[in-house]
Computed example of a mutant assay.
Amino acid sequence: MRNKDTCKLCGNFETLTFEHIPPQGAFNSSPVLFQDKENLLDKSSYRYGGRKRSNRGAGGYHLCGSCNKNTGSWYANDYIDFAKQGAYVLTHRVYANNFICAEYEIKPLNVLKQILTMFVALDNSGFFLKKPSIREFILDRKSKSLPPDIRLLMYMSSAISLRNPLSWSNMDGYARTFGEITFIPFGFHISIETPTINRPFCDISNFSDFEFGEESLITLPLRHLIPQSILPGLYL
């Protein structure tokens, strides 16, 4: 536990609980080293250029107990199952032009909402708190109303941990609002209110067409990408 703060999801001033991002069962139970704004941007800090250690795995105190419990019980296990299938595919399939095409038996809407929950939890800018349509989509587990200005895309990755939840930059000649979360075996890219960048992503925004709890066999052609730096959209 830690002192009260604003929950990134519901916006209430509550005692925050530790949120694993991605869920603990999705290969996120071991200590990790990470970098935050202080390490990357604050040249006056003695921590600049260094890394911080989280003994509990990747994550932090981002959500209140209620939001953590609800999203965990609604979506986390389905994402964990998706990640385990992805890990098997990553280690057992032959790459074809750096693409790995496989079938996944998943609950698409549940998975989509867990991914969005991760983006919202990691946002330190307050951007998502000003977007009630996104929070309402997550907190109403039966809602299929993904805001039309949001695109969620994905790729496959063997990167252990690289998270860039939200960025504003000029890429490919266009000012964009976008972000990424990468944690083996997947990487996720979000574009908000701007066209997606021209990268070999697989668009999974249509996962919102499914019902909550509905299971489906989905074929995903996923490009294998390794992030080049902390900046989203750049790969080796």
Rank of each mutant, 00 (worst) to 15 (best):
residue 147 P to F: 04
residue 144 K to L: 04
residue 84 K to Q: 05
residue 45 S to R: 00
residue 37 K to G: 13
residue 123 D to V: 02
residue 135 R to C: 10
residue 45 S to Y: 08
residue 74 W to F: 15
residue 133 S to F: 07
residue 80 I to N: 00
residue 102 A to Y: 10
residue 109 L to N: 08
residue 52 K to A: 09
residue 114 Q to E: 09
residue 129 L to R: 10
residue 94 V to Q: 13
residue 103 E to R: 06
residue 100 I to L: 08
residue 120 V to T: 08
residue 102 A to Q: 13
residue 84 K to D: 10
residue 90 L to C: 14
residue 45 S to T: 13
residue 89 V to Q: 07
residue 111 V to Q: 03
residue 74 W to L: 12
residue 52 K to F: 09
residue 59 G to F: 01
residue 48 Y to I: 15
residue 127 F to R: 00
residue 93 R to P: 14
residue 145 S to G: 01
residue 140 D to Y: 11
residue 139 L to F: 02
residue 70 N to M: 04
residue 49 G to Q: 04
residue 38 E to I: 15
residue 49 G to T: 10
residue 94 V to F: 15
residue 66 S to N: 13
residue 105 E to V: 08
residue 122 L to D: 07
residue 113 K to P: 09
residue 141 R to W: 01
residue 45 S to M: 06
residue 106 I to S: 00
residue 110 N to K: 00
residue 114 Q to G: 13
residue 69 K to I: 12
residue 44 S to P: 03
residue 76 A to V: 11
residue 140 D to M: 13
residue 85 Q to E: 13
residue 98 N to M: 09
residue 64 C to G: 11
residue 129 L to W: 03
residue 125 S to H: 04
residue 62 H to A: 14
residue 82 F to N: 00
residue 77 N to I: 07
residue 119 F to W: 03
residue 125 S to M: 03
residue 68 N to H: 12
residue 110 N to A: 11
residue 137 F to E: 05
residue 58 A to I: 00
residue 100 I to P: 04
residue 103 E to V: 11
residue 147 P to W: 02
residue 55 N to T: 09
residue 134 I to T: 02
residue 94 V to K: 15
residue 76 A to E: 11
residue 128 F to G: 07
residue 66 S to H: 12
residue 108 P to M: 02
residue 40 L to C: 14
residue 97 N to G: 07
residue 119 F to T: 14
residue 142 K to P: 03
residue 125 S to C: 02
residue 61 Y to I: 00
residue 115 I to D: 06
residue 76 A to I: 12
residue 112 L to N: 12
residue 94 V to S: 14
residue 129 L to I: 12
residue 84 K to W: 07
residue 43 K to A: 13
residue 89 V to G: 09
residue 61 Y to W: 10
residue 112 L to P: 14
residue 56 R to V: 11
residue 57 G to S: 15
residue 128 F to M: 15
residue 66 S to Q: 09
residue 54 S to Y: 08
residue 98 N to D: 11
residue 146 L to I: 05
residue 116 L to T: 11
residue 103 E to L: 10
residue 133 S to N: 09
residue 141 R to N: 09
residue 142 K to L: 10
residue 132 P to Q: 10
residue 69 K to D: 09
residue 97 N to C: 11
residue 92 H to M: 06
residue 116 L to M: 08
residue 60 G to W: 00
residue 123 D to G: 01
residue 121 A to T: 08
residue 80 I to W: 04
residue 126 G to W: 01
residue 122 L to V: 05
residue 37 K to W: 10
residue 117 T to H: 03
residue 57 G to E: 03
residue 143 S to T: 05
residue 48 Y to M: 02
residue 60 G to F: 01
residue 83 A to V: 04
residue 135 R to P: 01
residue 95 Y to E: 10
residue 84 K to T: 13
residue 140 D to W: 05
residue 47 R to V: 14
residue 97 N to R: 07
residue 143 S to M: 02
residue 83 A to D: 04
residue 73 S to C: 14
residue 144 K to N: 05
residue 73 S to T: 15
residue 67 C to H: 08
residue 146 L to V: 06
residue 51 R to A: 11
residue 46 Y to T: 15
residue 47 R to E: 14
residue 51 R to S: 14
residue 108 P to S: 03
residue 142 K to A: 02
residue 113 K to E: 02
residue 93 R to K: 09
residue 65 G to K: 00
residue 114 Q to R: 15
residue 97 N to Q: 06
residue 139 L to D: 05
residue 93 R to C: 15
residue 58 A to W: 01
